[in-house]
Deep mutational scan, measured.
Amino acid sequence: MADQLTEEQIAEFKEAFSLFDKDGDGTITTKELGTVMRSLGQNPTEAELQDMINEVDADGNGTIDFPEFLTMMARKMKDTDSEEEIREAFRVFDKDGNGYISAAELRHVMTNLGEKLTDEEVDEMIREADIDGDGQVNYEEFVQMMTAK
């Protein structure tokens, strides 16, 4: 299944994987998964984290390695993001709930994920998604960005 991913997608997933893999040992533990999910405003229980890991832990060693992570991402993409997942993601970014993602809100979430971005990089990300040019990202623009192939 992971063989249907483009090189660009694999590179993006590698970057995402390293955000989860806090200690850089090449595997994601339940603790690391929990840290990232909490930084995104989720509050999973230990059991939920274990279930999430077990779902993709092909070799049964209790952690997720990069090939397992790729399989999980490929699977998720095949079920292409349901509207509800996209709306949920939008809410994570839209901290003040005004229906727009500002540069400050984007920077806040990315920083929580451990991504240190310059102001230019954040502005560039907003510009790429900002179709109507108002300097922020509304829900429609967010959907376009998330579903762009």
Score class of each variant (00 low, 15 high):
Thr35Tyr: 02
Leu40Arg: 07
Ser18Thr: 10
Ala11Met: 04
Gly26Val: 10
Glu140Met: 13
Phe66His: 04
Asp65Met: 09
Thr147Gly: 15
Leu40Val: 14
Val122Ser: 15
Phe13Gly: 15
Glu48Lys: 07
Met37Trp: 14
Thr63Phe: 06
His108Asn: 13
Thr45Phe: 14
Asp123Cys: 04
Glu85Ile: 14
Asp134Arg: 04
Gln144Lys: 07
Phe69Lys: 04
Phe20Pro: 04
Glu128Gly: 11
Pro67Asp: 07
Glu46Thr: 02
Gln42Gly: 07
Ala58Leu: 01
Arg75Met: 14
Asn138Ser: 13
Thr63Gln: 05
Ile53Pro: 12
Gly26Arg: 15
Leu5Pro: 11
Gly135Asp: 05
Ile131Tyr: 10
Pro67Trp: 08
Asn61Thr: 03
Glu88Asn: 15
Arg87Thr: 06
Glu83Gly: 12
Thr35Asp: 04
Ala129Ile: 00
Asp119Lys: 09
Thr30Asn: 04
Ile101Gln: 03
Ala2Ile: 05
Gly60His: 15
Leu19Ala: 14
Asn112Thr: 11
Gly62Asp: 10
Arg127Ala: 01
Ser18Gly: 02
Glu115Pro: 14
Thr29Arg: 04
Ala11Thr: 13
Glu115Val: 10
Glu141Trp: 05
Lys31Trp: 09
Ala16Ser: 09
Lys14Ile: 00
Ala16Thr: 10
Asn112Ala: 03
Tyr139Asn: 13
Asp25Arg: 15
Asn43Gly: 06
Thr63Leu: 06
Lys149Arg: 12
Lys22Asp: 03
Asp132Phe: 14
Thr35Lys: 01
Ala74Tyr: 15
Val56Asn: 03
Met72Thr: 13
Gln144Asn: 03
Gly99Ser: 14
Gly133Lys: 09
Ala148Leu: 05
Phe13Ile: 13
Lys78Asp: 07
Asn43Cys: 07
Leu70Arg: 14
Lys95Trp: 10
Arg127Ile: 10
Met72Phe: 15
Asp119Glu: 14
Ile10Lys: 00
Thr118Pro: 07
Gln42His: 13
Glu83Leu: 11
Glu105Arg: 05
Ser39Leu: 14
Ile53Ser: 06
Ile64Phe: 13
Gly60Ile: 07
Lys14Glu: 12
Glu7Ser: 02
Ser82Thr: 04
Thr6Asn: 00
Pro67Arg: 08
Thr80Glu: 09
Asp123Thr: 02
Lys22Glu: 12
Lys14Gln: 08
Asp25Gly: 11
Gly26Ala: 13
Gly133Ala: 09
Glu120Ile: 11
Glu84Ser: 01
Lys95Ser: 15
Asp94Gly: 09
Gly135Leu: 01
Val109Glu: 01
Arg87Met: 05
Asp21Leu: 11
